[in-house]
Design a protein around this nucleic acid. Structure first.
Lengths: 208, 208
DNA sequence: CGCAATGGGGATGGCATCATCCCCTTTTGT
DNA sequence: ACAAAAGGGGATGATGCCATCCCCATTGCG
């Protein structure tokens, strides 16, 4: 049973990170805290295996290096046995190094963190590496979401729209099949279904 | 058919905001852009009814008042017919006023924005008001999420844990029943189911 | 005592999604 | 011209969640 804690003041982001953890970890339960005192309280009450912290908490100056590192240090000292990941909105390689010295095992920039990528960070940590993920706008994302689509349909459509030019659709079907552990023909079926729905709505983006 | 655009560089937050819109609006489709050029491109291609913008985009200094307002102004000028909501990580009442002068209809702080609250902002806008939502840590949240629980079970548990002391469980069942449009007995059933699952895991929080 | 609130469940039908299997036509590339 | 890729769908069983209705025992309180 894994126990994880997310310390982050933005409600939607905290819930999103908690959802990522739930999806990525098996047999875990995930707690969330909005402020440093709450986090300390939870860390006293219970033992955690994994803690994700955003140093920009209310009550501290998010632009002050000193304040931010103080938050990280306080959390790490309150749970010395846990794996610590720092998640931040602003990129800073120096701050990453400082967090590493404080005992953090990863430093991840929110701008570069997409859905499903947290497990990759955890794998890196498992291999004993310090995982740095800075912002990466080369792969800048442009999303479209349609309400009538099921998650699977949405997923294959997103992959199809983000594919590199020249990539065959077939290859994308195979990619989803491998990633999701399903049949490539099923992936193709979802794509067709999604396409049909968008056609009916008259909202088919270019590039089909 | 409502068309909405979310301009936000943090992937998880953008997806969360897009999910909020999908849940809150009927018959809509939602696009997302990670950078200002992408947003401008989308706004040229298509007409949007609603645009949500985070002024702290990559390529601009998030601490610079000038840069942030420039982003807001650029977006609003690119879609003068749309309703504009500014969503920001850092609280600032002066910035809120400046955004209002630029034509924004709401200024919302991420720290104070919980799941399901975006519809309230939209209602305020519909009534012609300028909606300001600054950070509110009086109702600071402490969340627990358990992986084996279904969304409904999670929901009723969260409501139960956040209830005011002295409130009867019955009252909470009624509250969920009203909010979700279901039977109070059903709400009770979900609570019991959730409780049973946590008991089996030996992870029942205090306060049952 | 009687009654309300709580704890602990079983069984049900409806519904959406998932994943798979099958069919066919049209377009594209070489 | 022939093969590969793509477009367009029907039908299926399994599964999980939703919402409901039903049963019971225990606890607290006036």
């Amino acid at each position: 049973m894994h126990r994880a804690l997310v310390v982050e003041d933005q409600n939607l982001m905290r819930l999103a990170l908690m959802a990522e953890l739930r999806a990525g970890l098996r047999d875990c339960y995930v707690a969330g805290a909005q402020t440093l005192p709450m986090a300390k309280q939870l860390l006293e009450q219970d033992q955690f295996d994994l803690v994700i912290t955003d140093p920009g908490l209310p009550g501290f100056d998010p632009t002050s290096r000193h304040d931010r590192l103080h938050v990280v240090e306080t959390i790490i000292e309150a749970a010395p046995g846990a794996v610590h990941i720092v998640v931040t909105g602003s990129d800073d390689e120096e701050e990453a190094s400082a967090c590493r010295l404080l005992g953090a095992r990863a430093y991840v920039c929110k701008t570069g963190l997409s859905q499903g990528e947290l497990p990759l960070v955890l794998e890196q940590i498992d291999r004993g590496e310090f995982s740095i993920q800075l912002s990466d706008l080369d792969t800048a994302q442009l999303d479209l979401r349609f309400p009538t689509l099921t998650p699977r349909e949405d997923e294959i459509l997103a992959m199809m729209m983000h594919r590199n030019t020249g990539t065959k659709r077939r290859a994308v079907f195979q990619e989803l099949a491998t990633k999701a552990g399903i049949n490539a023909a099923s992936a193709e079926r979802y794509y067709k279904q999604a396409r049909a729905k968008l056609l009916k709505l008259g909202r088919l983006p270019e590039g089909l």
